[in-house]
Each structure stands twice: as structure tokens, then as C-alpha cells.
Amino acid sequence: MSVDERALGALLEESNDLQSGAMRSIREPLRELVERGQERRAHGGLDPDEQRQFTTERNRLVRSRLCGTGAFATLGFGAALLALFDSPAFAVGGSDVQILQTAASLENLAVATYDLALTFDFIGGSTAIPTVKAFAMTTKDQHDAHAKAFNAALKRLGGKEQTAPDPVLLDTVNRAKATLTGPGPVIDLAITLEDTAAQTYVANTSALTDKQARNVTASIMGVEAQHVAVLLAVKALVGANLADQVKLPPDLALLPEAAGSVGFPGAFYKTDKSRPAEEGAVT
């Protein structure tokens, strides 16, 4: 078999030129497509049914490609990331405005719930553990600051501010009210709200297309996670009849061994309880 090496080299060059030419021709329409998509999403222009269809189809393809080809078997971080992809949050398809409105709604609910908790004597009154009372007050203020930050990000994107609470979780809080007869159930409810917020923001951080909205969200997710850590530690101490050790600092020698790790139950923050993007959107 004879080969014209010069012709082969020319073919390769031609292939390279073709690729470069194709890339030049595709770049501009692609940029326009991205801009149109971002604009559409940023202003909440997605039809909910279309969004659900997108999410379902995307999940099906991602899963079939990951699992069907076995590609993940060769990936070191595969299991952990597959778990992340399995969770609904990483399939969030909502607009940035919807995502931010839902985030603000979670913060509004948190503020209202801490407000409610502080009306109970065992949280905000004379029988309260002082550290718990201080935590509830400070945390309420921090959530208020978060709500303002999300609403400021919303305004920047031209979206409507969200001043109402998340409707689904509001129902959870309303149903729990009758059970809030002591610190334990209040702490449990607070953990639920804080963890849900943290998980939602972890998921939103990679879903948001607007960089500033992403940065705001990312700067809040870790703080909610800290609230969770403190509440888990307080719950463990109260549960072990060590409420007197809910103080700064505690007497380390009196703490049970588990108290050292109860505040951070996983190496990676989960997203399986994150709220859908449109749940708290302004309609």
C-alpha cells in the first residue's frame, strides 16, 4: 500500500482548518442562543410543564449515559457525584428569578418561625437557656439579612421581591405548632428549616446562571449549615440531660464523645431535601 505522506499531512491540515472554520461559524449563533436562554430564564420565562419535561428528559439522559456506558466505574469521585445527581436539586431547571424568590421565601419563613419561637417562654422568656435565646435572636437577624440579600439580587435581575414565606414549608410549620411544647420540638423544627435552606442553596449554587446571584447564595449556604451544626449539638446536649452545657464554652470534660461529631453528619452537604426552584416563586 503506498501512501502519499505529503497528501496525508495536507489532509490533516485541512481537517484542522475545517474544524476551525466550523467553530468560527458556530460561535456567534451559540453565543446568541446562550444569551437568549439566560435572558429567558432570568426573567422567569419558562413554562412549568416545559421545565418539568426538560428536567425529566435531562435526568433520563444523564442517568442512561452515566450508568449505561459504565463510564462512572472509572471515575474516582463517581459514587459521590452520582449521589448528588440522583438528588432532585441538581436537576433544578428554574429561572434565576424563581430560584432567588424561593430562597427569599425560605428566609422569610425562618424569620417568622424564630419570631414565633421567641414568644415561647422556654425559648425567649425567663425559663429559656440563655445561649439558646441568644442564638434564636441572632439567627433570626441573620435570616433577615439573607432575605434582604436575596431580594436585592432579585431586584438587580429585574424580578419581583419575595416577602411571603415558602408555602409548602409554611404548612409544615403550621402543622408543627401544636407540638412546640418544649425546646426539643422547637429545635427539631429549626433543624428542618435550616437544613432545607442549606441544601437548597448548595443545589442552587451550581444551578444559578447569574454569577452575582450564585455568589450571594454561596455566601449564605455555609451559614445555614453552621446553624444546623449548632442546633444538632444543642439537641444532643439537651437530649443527654446536659442542657446546662449549652453555654460558651461548654465544659469539654463533661461532654459525651458523640458531641464532638454530631454537628457535621456528612463529609459532603446533601441536596436531597432541597426545595424546587418554583416552589416559592412570586406568581
Binding site: 439567627t139 451550581s206 451544626a229 449548632v230 460558651l248 464554652p249 454537628g263 457535621f264 459532603f268
Partner: peptide, 26 residues
């Protein structure tokens, strides 16, 4: 996604350390 899944956990470690040290944890 990797950064977002890890950053809050480091923050949790910090919160408990602050608690242990007698600092406000958040």
C-alpha cells in the same frame, strides 16, 4: 458542585470549634 458540597461542611467544623473555644459559633 464539589466546592458547594464541601464549603458548608468546613463551615460546620468551624462552628463547632468556635463553640468549643467559647466564641459565638456563627
Amino acid at each position: 458542585q464539589v466546592a458547594a458540597a464541601i464549603q458548608p461542611v468546613e463551615m460546620q467544623h468551624a462552628a463547632i470549634l468556635n463553640f468549643v473555644l467559647g466564641n459565638y459559633p456563627v
